[in-house]
Design a protein around this nucleic acid. Structure first.
Length: 634
DNA sequence: TTAGGGTTAG
């Protein structure tokens, strides 16, 4: 634990107060100046009030502490730093220390002015401190992200015999970022009898879900008899941020049923939940509620992100254009959104506009820019941005930027160069980097480097299912069936099982899930009929099932049969049966789309005059008129 | 006089 930073109360401090300015006795009379000062404070006329305070000081008088308290409040309201300091000096200019509550007011004033060193100095010099003094300082430390110091101060406070209250705990909980520490503080809260306080509970829910275990957070929420809006927001935000969008939306609906009106924070979390589970319809419904908060930047950024991640760039762009204010997050979201949806050139064009008129790019903006370069095969541009980002924007390339460069080189087929680049990095490559290279090896059929990359991944993550699948796909592509079998054996030995391909989509307000080889959907007979009709139509324009995407060594006929029922094909057929005129079919997929399904989707859009959008774990494929936005490069 | 909830990548 770090050495404690505060200074304990010393007797000499007390002496200081008594020896500083001994000119005048405490004034026993009541002056009309005091009434005047109190009235000016009431009228919120800071300038005149300060003038009167100066006169009072010139006469070595001292007004009522309540009046000074109002004056400090007035300074905070007006963000009048100099005046605030002036009052502090005036109050110190006496042989008696200010009342404790006045020192606390000054402390709070410094914290609100972000003058933490002044606050700490005052705190150190205070002859006595109560729970408010400690809580003010602890809360400031938490806001400054000095977590360890905040906890140190809580311990010091307990040692000095000051009992924390609900204010203290609702602040200090945010300083706990390990489950063990959370438990300790939670026990302390129970011992102090403060577990039922609604502020403490919302903090508990928030920190449990962020740093500990969402289940504990939910338990704290579930046990509550009386909940307020922030408590609901804490639990909805907890599920939304942890990726359980369904539960978050279920709670969002529960909150409305309980009679609460969603505010900006609720809606931001609801949008994040929609983003997580890619539910454009629900996202649009939430958008209706967002309209009344059209000046809220965070909420609009979340809306923008939802439309980007749900593959609706037209709606995302409409939001972006309408935004009354845009910050670096708005720009970065839009740039990444365009890049992920296969519109890299537009992403880079937008980046140029940002450089000309927008805020300064940050670390994440540059990840989006490099992502755009790599997905469009713009090797030279990628190198330029990578090499100049430190000089131009003061951003040193980090792990993610290196990852984008490996992707850029790998996609462009420069696999040796990518491998050398990995070797030249100043840090150990992680699984993400090796997986990126492995993906490129698959596209470019380089089984030699692929095996190297896969082995590196399996050294770091011996149970990584995706790597086994990718490796066996590479072998299958080269018809190395013995090697395929060996990979499958290694998977069995490690107890790793292939996650089945799963596609899902919304029709009406219902989600329909399709799993490869699973025919349990109630409309499956019609779906198969529709699928056969589509295959018949695209066969007329040259479709031949690309059997190399089938994992096992089967007879051709069996392979074709296996390909035919891939989950995305079932979903496309179902989408064709239910889609409305002019509306695209939107499908989500848990794994990368296979080459055959990619070709199937392209030809279907050509013969059926329909748009199909498939989102895989990394990007979108927008299929239209027989072409895909990814440029057949994924 | 002190307190709780929301946005961009990977």
């Amino acid at each position: 634990m770090k050495l404690l930073q505060w200074r304990p109360i010393r007797a000499k401090n007390k002496k200081l107060w008594f020896s500083s300015i001994p000119q005048q006795n405490p004034n026993p009379i009541h002056s009309p100046l005091f009434d005047n000062l109190a009235q000016l404070c009431h009228q919120k006329d800071l300038q005149k009030a300060m003038g009167v305070m100066n006169v009072i000081e010139d006469h070595h008088l001292r007004a009522d502490p309540i009046t000074y308290s109002s004056l400090i409040k007035l300074c905070i309201e007006n963000r009048a730093v100099n005046e605030g300091r002036r009052i502090h000096r005036h109050l110190s200019d006496d042989d008696r220390p200010p009342k404790l509550f006045l020192s606390n007011s000054l402390l709070s004033m410094y914290v609100k002015f972000n003058l933490f060193e002044d606050a700490r100095h005052l705190f150190d010099e205070m002859p006595e401190r109560n729970v408010v003094s400690w809580t003010t300082l602890i809360s400031a430390l938490v806001h400054l992200d000095s977590r360890e110091e905040a906890i140190d101060h809580l311990i010091a406070m307990l040692r000095e015999g000051v009992r924390p209250n609900m204010y203290t705990f609702s602040s200090v909980l945010r300083a706990c970022q390990t489950l063990r520490m959370l438990w300790s503080i939670h026990c302390c809260i129970i011992k102090c009898g403060l577990e039922l306080d609604v502020f403490v509970r919302s903090s508990l829910i928030d920190v449990y879900s962020k740093y500990g275990d969402l289940e504990y957070g939910y338990q704290v929420f579930d046990e509550m008899a009386t909940r307020d809006l922030v408590v609901w927001n804490s639990i909805i935000g907890g599920f939304a941020q942890s990726g359980d969008g369904y539960k978050a939306l279920e709670l969002f609906i529960g909150m409305k049923k309980a009679g609460f009106l969603a505010n900006q924070s609720t809606l931001t979390s609801a949008l994040r939940a929609c983003t997580g589970i890619v539910t454009l319809e629900m996202g649009r419904q939430v958008h209706v509620h967002v309209l009344k908060y059209d000046r809220d930047l965070i909420l609009n950024n979340a809306l923008l992100d939802m439309y980007c991640k749900c593959g609706s760039l037209a709606e995302a762009n409409a939001v972006f254009q309408r935004m009354k204010e845009r910050d670096v997050i708005s720009w970065s979201t839009m740039i990444s959104g365009l890049a992920q949806n296969g519109r890299s050139i537009e992403a880079l064009r937008l980046f140029e506009s940002m450089k000309a008129a927008g805020p300064k790019p940050n670390y994440i903006t540059m990840v989006g820019v490099l992502f755009a370069c790599s997905h469009a095969g713009l090797v030279e541009d990628g190198w330029y941005y990578f090499n100049s980002m430190a000089k131009l924007f003061g951003i040193e390339p980090g792990r993610e930027h290196y990852g984008c460069m490996v992707d850029l080189l790998g996609r462009a087929g420069k696999l040796e160069e990518a491998l050398n680049f990995i070797d030249s990095m100043g840090f150990q490559p992680d699984c993400v980097i090796w997986r990126t290279l492995l993906g490129a090896c698959r596209v470019h059929r380089n089984s030699c480097i692929a095996v190297h990359a896969a082995k590196e991944i399996l050294k770091l993550e011996p149970e990584d299912e995706g790597t086994y699948i990718l490796l066996s796909n590479i072998y299958a592509d080269s018809r190395r069936w013995n090697d395929v079998e060996q990979v499958r054996k290694a998977m069995r030995d490690q107890g790793v099982r292939k996650e089945p391909g799963r596609s899902w989509m919304e029709v009406g307000k219902k989600a329909h899930v399709f799993i490869v080889g699973d025919f349990s959907h109630p409309e499956m007979d019609c779906i198969i009929k529709e699928l056969n009709r589509l295959i018949g139509r695209i066969t007329d324009v040259g479709y031949v099932p690309d059997v190399k995407f089938v994992l096992h060594d089967l007879e051709r006929e069996q392979k074709e049969e296996s390909l035919r029922y891939h989950s995305e094909k079932l979903a496309i057929a179902f989408g064709m049966m239910n889609s409305m005129h002019g509306k695209p079919i939107r499908i989500m997929k848990n794994l990368r789309i296979c080459g055959d399904c990619h070709a199937f989707a392209k030809l279907t859009t050509k013969v059926e005059n329909k748009t199909i959008i498939i989102r895989d774990p990394v990007r979108f494929h927008h299929f239209q008129d027989g072409i895909c936005s990814c440029g057949d490069y994924w």
